[in-house]
């Protein structure tokens, strides 16, 4: 549910609401509670790019050989497929997340972020399993899928909550810059 135009949140959050976009904007939705599509797109891409670039940097700084081996094992086409699936799933889940919350309210944003972080986690995991099947390790992949979905959901929830917290923080930084 959108919270356009409301006062400060119960957790002392920023009063700014971002669901409503200017009526003259061609991309504005007719429903005032819909999230700004630009916000959904930008945050989804922000999450995906950080989720990929940060481990590559940390991994390369610690053990470049391991990063090289991992990239070599994954392959260009498979890596691109996993990335695009992650991007699409995150875009979809961010849209659902931002329909539920207002970034001005930290606690509800993080809780809903955990909930909506689960689907991309599971989807990416199943994509990796599908790649294993395509590489001819079907029985092993099915075994892994059986026990791995729960872990993927938990990891997705953790990342969802983490990124929701980061988004709330950045939203407040933007608010303070806007008031200067």
């Amino acid at each position: 549910m959108g919270e356009g135009g409301r006062g400060p949140g119960p957790d002392g959050g920023d009063a700014g609401a971002i669901q409503a976009v200017e009526p003259s904007d061609a991309t504005a939705s007719t429903d005032a509670t819909d999230p700004d599509p630009l916000l959904v797109w930008s945050l989804a891409t922000f999450h995906v790019t950080v989720l990929v670039a940060l481990p590559v940097w940390v991994g390369h700084a610690i053990d470049p050989v391991a990063v090289g081996g991992l990239l070599d094992g994954l392959g260009t086409l498979a890596g691109a497929a996993v990335y695009l699936v992650l991007w699409g799933a995150t875009w979809w889940s961010n849209d659902a997340w931002l329909r539920e919350v207002d970034l001005a309210h930290a606690r509800e944003s993080v809780v809903a972020g955990a909930k909506w972080g689960m689907p991309p986690g599971v989807v990416v995991f199943l994509t990796l399993v599908a790649l294993l099947v395509l590489r001819g390790v079907g029985a092993f992949a099915v075994f892994v899928a059986g026990i791995g979905i729960a872990f993927a959901a938990v990891f997705g929830a953790l990342f969802g909550a983490l990124f929701a917290g980061v988004d709330v923080l950045l939203f407040r930084v933007a608010g303070s810059l806007g008031r200067r």
Partner: peptide, 30 residues
């Protein structure tokens, strides 16, 4: 290069949020 890219991503998220807030008329930045 990689941490610079990460800093660019974080800074750009703030920049986009500034614009989103401006479009919504909430604390529009100068």
């Amino acid at each position: 290069k990689l941490p610079l890219v990460l800093a660019l991503l974080v800074g750009s998220a703030v920049r986009t949020l500034l614009l989103v807030r401006a479009r919504a008329g909430v604390d529009p930045p100068s």
